[in-house]
Design a binder for these strands. Structure first.
Lengths: 243, 243
DNA sequence: TATAGTTGTCTATATCAATAGACATTTAAA
DNA sequence: TTTAAATGTCTATTGATATAGACAACTATA
């Protein structure tokens, strides 16, 4: 596996190499030693100068993924990637299950507004009808995993922001508002580069990739109760669809 | 929407801006005029020099998304994004449906080899058992959409490469080999930066994002018949999961 | 036929990214 | 205690990235 990095692409070599090493760590490539290969070996592997590799490792150290120790080598500090099953019963908190000790959903802001075309299509209402919008960040063991913008029909779920702030969970908030069960109707998945706001909110390495889901949840009668656009740090998560 | 680009991140400004303009085009932001805003307007919007915007537009022109015309402006040539439904009956060719006129699957190479741990887990066989590996590229209307590496149990589907070369379709090839129906068991989705080989095969802008799916197909008795790792050009596709 | 608005081209300069080499410092093992 | 192997630091140089300004060339329209 040599010569996998590209020059003159607008993406710096040190960033490409950081991405590859992060991926290799996540895939368990260095599990035997618990360490990243020596800088000189990586430099040879990628066909670059040792200093370029050092820039990549410095970036990973900044992310808290590795720790370089003079004389010893570069130790792997963290290698997990959270898995999100996407099913009829998709729930953020429960989906994480035993992969993290603590799950929290934090409400950043909310407002009542009129549904635009996209939200109206998701919630099957008319454009201009009132909806509640919530901006949230979800964390696993204190580490940000995703930002989400969620819309709810204002009439039925006006109390959503308050309930979510208390329970830190969409499922529990729905329960408080009299909706004991709901199902995932559709999920769309795309990927883009993170913008400034999400980079800050998710504590990402700049230039990182986001996995975007656009999801519709309905009650058991098929009436949409939530439309949400979630932005996940691509290097911390993966999705699983079981059929 | 100003100041959304980040400096000193290892991702060049012109690349970040190209990504944002591509996204805006795809979202229909410029549908009224069918043109990208003037370079000076974009430069002001993103808070960069006009020359930097020009680099971004040159990259998009290279991709065939826009065409700059001196004196007039920058015309949008293409804005579609293919949608792939992921269901029990996920099939590449049928899934595209009416979104493209012509679908082709091209066999790049194939070989018989021993299953490694990942493939063995997917196909529910033992590591070291013989499998057929195929490298393919799939195109919609001549435009590359995804690269895939697929593995099949060698005993049951030894004729796969030959059948695929003729039919250009996994479904039809399975049918020729006596498997009239199959179902998608699991799909994993992640995202990474494209490497050199995929950039070339998919005719991507360098540094582009890939959506990765790792999928297991089984026959109707639940016996795995295919394990495939597919790499999609993230700016050309989206996935939809219907529950 | 002017004119405003747009893209195309050129020069110059500053900063970031990458390479190259030398040597110091620390760790672990012989 | 020596030595090999690893990371840390420094200087110097080259090429890519970004800014700045001026002006040419083209298009559509008043």
């Amino acid at each position: 596996m040599a010569g996998q990095v590209q020059r003159q692409t607008g993406v710096a070599l040190w960033r490409q190499i950081a991405d590859r090493i992060r991926q290799a760590i996540s895939a368990g490539a260095y599990d035997e030693t618990g360490m990243v290969p020596p800088e000189t070996a990586l430099a040879q592997q990628f066909g670059v100068n040792r200093h370029t590799v050092r820039s990549a490792i410095a970036a990973l150290a900044q992310e808290g993924i590795v720790r370089a120790v003079q004389g010893r080598g570069t130790l792997i500090e963290r290698k997990e990637r959270l898995n999100f099953p996407i099913t009829k019963r998709t729930r953020f908190t429960a989906g994480i299950g035993e992969q993290a000790r603590e799950m929290r959903g934090l409400l950043l802001s909310y407002s009542e507004e009129k549904a635009d075309a996209e939200v109206a299509r998701g919630l099957k209402i008319r454009s201009g009808e009132p909806v509640i919008r919530m901006e949230t960040v979800r964390k696993a063991d204190g580490r940000p995993v995703s930002c989400a913008t969620a819309w709810f029909p204002a009439g039925r779920f006006g109390g959503m922001p308050d309930a979510y702030k208390r329970t830190e969970s969409i499922t529990k908030a729905f329960a408080e508002l009299g909706l004991s069960d709901y199902v995932r109707a559709t999920t769309e998945i795309t990927a883009i580069h993170a913008d400034e706001a999400d980079t800050a909110a998710l504590e990402l390495a700049p230039g990182a990739i986001l996995l975007i889901t656009k999801a519709v949840n309905t009650d058991l009668e098929g009436v949409p109760v939530q439309y949400a656009v979630s932005r996940f740090a691509a290097d911390r998560v993966q999705f699983t669809i079981e059929n």
